[in-house]
């Protein structure tokens, strides 16, 4: 590696070495390897567990641990990407279920949201990461536009198709109007109901489920605090975590 003369070459070598050295999860004839997710009561990953805090039982008999370590998401992602040429599920590894939810998008930001969803699908589909696409619809409905899949093309196609679908536009809304955002459809109790539907349906699925919100508006309905807190409680009980982001305009 010391003979490398430029950064590009160095980069390739570093990548190669890293790929060789990264510990890959393996299960030999006698060794059983487990991926264990530990989260706090809110569902947040908890990273301060020691080996002495954890006990593994097989058929009711406590097992002596041979190894124990925290694997960061970055490292786990890199391991998975090494296998990304295949869509074959690895039964030893944890299955990630991520739901992309598109809803109530403002006209001015809709393209960006779909671009982000597309980028997510393009970069994060992996053998053990299954991604589904949902669209929030009026009357508290949550429409599934793509089943949970680890096939990138299938997901990208569904995202493209959803972006092309007609969207609700209120009659006095004009896309170049500076007040457009104010006139775009507002979130309401129906949104909460739609999310409750999603939580109910994701609940029976295993592991922590991730819901990535691409929604332009989500109002905590005034005077309906009970529904709101119920939504959060149901999400916690169903092991559903919501994630979202925002850029100031």
């Amino acid at each position: 590696m010391s003979r490398c003369k430029n950064l590009a070459t160095l980069g390739m070598l570093v990548s190669f070495c890293w790929a060789q050295e990264a510990p890959l999860i393996r299960s030999s004839t006698r060794e059983v390897v487990l991926e264990v997710s530990v989260r706090d009561k809110h569902g947040k990953p908890f990273k301060k567990v020691g080996q002495e805090d954890l006990a593994v039982f097989e058929d009711g008999v406590r097992q002596e641990l041979r190894s124990f370590r925290l694997v960061s998401g970055v490292e786990a992602s890199a391991q998975e990407k090494q296998r990304s040429a295949s869509t074959a599920l690895n039964p030893i590894r944890t299955v990630n279920l991520v739901s992309l939810v598109m809803g109530n998008l403002l006209m001015r930001t809709r393209a960006d949201a779909f671009k982000a969803a597309r980028k997510f699908a393009d970069t994060q589909v992996r053998p053990n990461t299954f991604i589904a696409l949902f669209a929030m619809a009026p009357h508290g409905r949550m429409l599934q536009r793509c089943k949970f899949t680890n096939h990138r093309e299938e997901l990208l196609k569904a995202i493209d198709a959803l972006e092309k679908e007609p969207v609700l536009v209120v009659s006095n809304y004009f896309p170049n109007d500076p007040l457009a955002d104010c006139l775009a459809p507002r979130g309401d109790i129906a949104d909460v109901e739609a999310l409750q539907t999603l939580i109910r349906d994701l609940g029976p699925l295993p592991y922590q489920k991730t819901v990535m919100l691409f929604i332009g508006d989500l109002d905590r309905p005034a005077g309906m605090a009970e529904s709101w807190f119920s939504l959060i409680e149901k999400a916690r009980a169903a092991k559903v975590s919501f994630m979202a982001g925002q850029q100031s305009l």
């Binding site: 510990p23 006698r30 060794e31 991926e35 997710s37 990953p45 124990f68 998401g73 990630n96 980028k119």
Partner: peptide, 24 residues
């Protein structure tokens, strides 16, 4: 956030776990 930050943070969160092994 920008898209890259958000997507990486989501997956970092989703993928974080402990790896444990024992002998059958």
């Amino acid at each position: 956030a920008n898209n890259t930050d958000l997507l990486q943070t989501v997956m970092d969160d989703v993928d974080t776990r402990y790896e444990v092994s024992y002998r059958r």
